[in-house]
Each structure stands twice: as structure tokens, then as C-alpha cells.
Computed example of a mutant assay.
Amino acid sequence: MLLTNKKTVIIGAGPVGLTMARLLQQNGIDVTVYERDKDPKARIWGGTLDLHKGSGQDTMQKAGLLEMYYEKAIPMGRTVADYSGKILFTKETSEKEQYDNPEINRNDLRTLLIDSLKENTVVWDSKLTEIEEQNGKWLLYFENGKTADADFVIGANGGMTSIRKYITDAEVELTGTYMIQGEVAQSKAKSLKFYELCDDKILMVSCNGNLLVANPKNNNALSYNVIFKMPETLEIDFQNTENVAAFLSNKLSDWDESYKELFRATSLFTGLPTKKVSVEKTWKNNRPLPITLIGDAAHLMPPFAGQGANIGLFDALILSENLLNGEFQTIENAISNYEERMFIYAKEAQQETRENEIEMLKSDFSFLKFVN
């Protein structure tokens, strides 16, 4: 086996990195994951994830975790409303569809994956700052002053990874859209009208280039995104929730009061421009030692097709199979084949995401075709 007596290090304990560790570890591979978060209880903030058949769910099945995913995930219907709060479309999830793409809380998914690994597989509070080749090994430097070595490094630590420069000259690009994320605790009590509008489903509202997507069942909280074209200047203090609520209420001034009630009830805001890392640019072949990227580190993309996590998990599936199936003579050969395949499906996912991004903000109702 290619990784026998080799020390494999994964950088990043997100869903993709942890799943990669699981796939290798269940086949007896020595693998360690280094993660910048202080401990496993560090809360991951953001919307739920839905894993797709043919990518994310196939990977979970290979990892022996698909049934556990189904146990924690929630099948959810879709509701489409207009800016006045009028329901335009609603779709329940049928019994046949309950396993198609159920939504799972990010923290629940991380816990599921961590529990599937051997104790101490993840080394916490370890933010990678630099790597270098030294005496036939990768030497890794961490912000806490510690170091580690590895025979093989897999970067799974997100779009801003410092490892990318060893593999490709591709840089993070803005896609032209901005997202403000909000979370409401005890939403039924604090924003009852909006909570009832959701009706326990994913809610979508679009008007004049502004899109709101909400999930009322994100681990006892209601989470939502307000999405709009990136303005030339935007200065918001996201620590001041009243100011952010006022900004959204002003931006969506003609929207129904239930939406403004939602903004005022929000306990936590953050905002970010949407970004991508294109896979169009050729990756370097002259790497001194085995190293590659998976997930957002390889092909960061906005969430407009729900593909990011799913394509990342599919990376883990393809790469792990290449490393374990005995078909390749060297780790480098296994990596090269994975990357060639990844360039194709990741490019398709990025193209789909871009097309959706344009359509979802173009008019009031064109986004209806994305409701499934």
C-alpha cells in the first residue's frame, strides 16, 4: 500500500479533512489532522449542509457514516414568498425524497466525523503558518510555536490556505456578490411572524436583486442569508447588531414588516463577499514531496449550487481510493490522477454555481427553477 509506513498529515478539521482522515484511518493508515480551532467544542457558525447523492452521500457511505448522517439530518421542504410576505410556492418533502438531500447542522456533522476517528487523531489549536522541505520530509510550522513532520501533506483548510502556493499560482477571486448571514435564537418567540412564514421549510425570497434564504431548523436556531450584488463600498460593524439590522431594514425598506422583525431579532451577524479559487490555472508538477489540496482549498466556490462541501467530500473519496486501491505505483501518480479528475468535475460545479449566482440575482422569479 502506498501509505504504509508513511506519515500522512491533513491540515484542517472541516468536513472534508475529517472525512479524508476517516477514509484513510479505517484502512489502517497513520494520519494526523491539525486544526486551528482551539478544541472540538469550538462552534462552527453558518447555515446547514445538504449532502447530495452521487457525491457527498457516496463519500459518507464509503466512510461507513451514511446512516449516522441520515439520523442527524433533517429532510426539509421549500417555501417561496415575495417581499410582501405572500406565499408563492410551497413544496413538502415526500417520503421518497427524505434521503435526497437532508440538511445537517455543521457542528453535528463535525461531531459525527470526530467521533468516527481514533482518539487524538485531531491536534487542536494548531494553525499552520508555513511548510518547507527538509531532509526528505515536509516540516510544518504552527502559530503556537510547535512543529511537525510528514511524508505526505493534504491541504483541507479552506480557501485562504497558505499551502496553495506550493501547488498552484491560482488566487482567491471575488465573484461580485455579498452575503450577510444572521442567526436568531428562540426564533419562534422573537420573530413569530417570520418563523410561521417559513413553516418548517427552507424559505426563499427574491426582489430587485436581493435574495433571502432562511432555515428555521438549524440546531435550535433560525439561520439566514441576505444576498445582493457587491457594492463599491460597504462599511458595516458586524459586532453592532442594531446597526446591521438597520442597514438591512433600510436596504429592504419596501419588504414586509416580518422581515424587519427578523433582522431586529438577530443575535449574531457576519458578512462576507463571495469568493472562488478557479481550477482553470494549471497546477505545478515539480513538487518536492507529495502534497495536494482538497475541498475549498482546491476549488473554493460560493454556495449558489450547494456544491462546495459535496465536491470537497467527493475529492476525499477519489483521492483516498487512488491511494488505497493498489492501481498506482507512487503517491505522486495517485495524486496526479485525482487532480486530473477533480479539475473536470470541480470546473463543472464552479460553472453551475456561477450561472446560478447570475440567475438568482437577476430578477424576482428566475430563481424558482433552483427550488427542488
Rank of each mutant, 00 (worst) to 15 (best):
P231F: 11
L3Y: 08
A298K: 09
I202W: 13
G46S: 05
L117S: 04
G85A: 01
K137D: 08
L268W: 13
V226T: 03
A170I: 03
G155V: 08
G12V: 10
F370P: 02
P75W: 02
A265L: 12
E97F: 07
G295N: 07
T79F: 06
D315L: 07
K146F: 00
S55F: 02
V213H: 06
P302Y: 08
A81Q: 07
V9H: 04
V226K: 02
V279W: 04
P75K: 03
V16Q: 07
F370N: 12
G17Y: 10
P273L: 04
A297Y: 11
V226R: 00
Q186H: 14
L66Q: 06
E359M: 11
E171M: 13
D149Q: 15
T292E: 06
S94M: 05
L313R: 05
D58E: 11
I104Y: 04
Q329E: 13
K369N: 06
Q239I: 12
E332V: 12
D364E: 07
T4S: 11
V205I: 15
F263I: 02
T90A: 10
E340K: 15
R354Y: 15
E327N: 14
E71N: 14
Q350A: 07
K217N: 15
L88N: 13
F89C: 06
E35S: 02
N243P: 00
T79H: 09
K137G: 11
A63P: 00
I163K: 02
R164N: 00
L139D: 04
A73E: 08
T48Q: 14
T79I: 15
W124C: 05
E173H: 03
Q239V: 09
S162D: 08
M20A: 10
K118G: 15
S278N: 11
E257C: 04
G85F: 05
I291G: 04
N225D: 15
D364R: 14
T90I: 13
E340P: 12
K6L: 06
L248T: 04
D199S: 14
T282G: 02
E183S: 15
R164P: 00
G182H: 05
D58Y: 09
N215F: 10
I29Y: 11
F269R: 05
P40G: 14
L88C: 07
R36P: 01
K53A: 01
D315K: 10
A148Q: 05
E171T: 15
L203Q: 10
E232C: 01
G28N: 09
P216Y: 02
L18N: 10
R110T: 12
D315M: 12
G14Q: 03
L139W: 06
N220Q: 14
P216W: 05
I358M: 14
N210Y: 11
G136P: 06
W283Q: 11
F89P: 12
N310H: 00
A170K: 03
